[in-house]
Design a protein around this nucleic acid. Structure first.
Lengths: 177, 177
DNA sequence: TAGAGTTATTTGCACAAGCAACCATTGCGC
DNA sequence: GCGCAATGGTTGCTTGTGCAAATAACTCTA
């Protein structure tokens, strides 16, 4: 019941509700994915994301710093995460031949197998949600708008794909973009 | 460079890139907000969200469980978070007169002041992003699509507003919705 | 009213994450 | 070649988080 034509209360600013929608949508996807991935193949969402990034990269390996940049993890967080993945045999560290400071995180065969094992169920869920909610045109519109918003708010991600591609000298985009 | 007409590699499924966009957008907003709120008023994003939820609720108070349901926190996580907020004087616990198990988290005057102090700068950033990226019609389209997606993926959030309103017996929506 | 079953919140514990400090390596300027 | 700043990665420490158990209070039924 805020005033109508006087300056509206900033608490009711529509942009707040828009980001609220974004956050709630993200939360919904996240919790559903966490549940589904855990039940299907014992993967946490974070492990899934890391394995997926690696699997989508030509050569199936990425420098630690590149991998950290593509996720929400800090460098130290990634170190520990890769420790755990390595202990589980899903990833292995490889020395970088040109720079002995760097190391690659490389997807193992078992890592890819685990990923591909959970993928069908995960995709099934996504198809269920998207295709039940939108027709093809709406989905394309949403993607377009989201991409522009992503580029506006997170410009690093926009060029992460090309960076990562350059990383290993291949042409195909590595990141989601 | 995946096959064109044979069954595409599930790793390249377009829905994966769509949720990737959503995640990256969310990450972008999150980190920018965290930085901005921290610099402006020493609020973490989580504190901001909690204070905002309370401020947008008629009566400026919410049951612990309702507050937990509206955020990504578990019940125990919220207990600790409210502990910290209470220690800072931004929130106080109030006993629920009708159910002695429950307690309300109520916004204090100082809490609202802190919130309103950081809000202008935060909104300024949002306006900057949204208005530079979209015209009014595109923004409305995005909101509509996002709302439907949110409802599909996180149906609890859709009715959280009415629940919360019933909570304190008022008619105005409390949640972002 | 007594008791079984549920619900709201709080604690114990283990784990994951970030920051800052640290070590090793690289590249640059002299 | 040699020091020096910058870079990539890993560790110590502190904090925050969820899960499970515990506590307290409510509801329903007999």
């Amino acid at each position: 019941m805020a005033a109508h034509r006087t300056a509206a209360d900033p608490l009711e600013h529509p942009h707040l509700t828009t980001v609220g929608l974004l956050v709630e949508t993200h939360a919904g996807f996240t919790s559903a994915a966490e549940r589904g991935l855990g039940a299907t193949g014992g993967l946490s969402l974070q492990w899934f994301e890391l394995l997926l990034r690696l699997a989508r990269t030509p050569g199936h390996r990425l420098r630690m710093s590149a991998l950290a940049a593509q996720t929400t993890l800090s460098a130290s967080g990634l170190t520990r995460a890769v420790d755990r993945l390595e202990a589980e045999g899903l990833v292995r560290r490889e020395a970088c031949p040109t720079d002995r400071r760097s190391s690659y995180a490389a997807l193992t065969g078992e890592g890819e197998a685990r990923l591909r094992r959970v993928l069908p169920h995960h995709l099934e869920h996504l198809v269920e949600v998207f295709d039940r909610t939108f027709d093809a045109e709406e989905l394309a519109t949403l993607c377009g708008l989201l991409r522009r918003l992503r580029d506006a708010v997170n410009p690093q991600a926009a060029c992460a794909s090309s960076d990562a591609a350059v990383e290993v000298g291949a042409g195909t985009a590595a990141s989601a973009s």
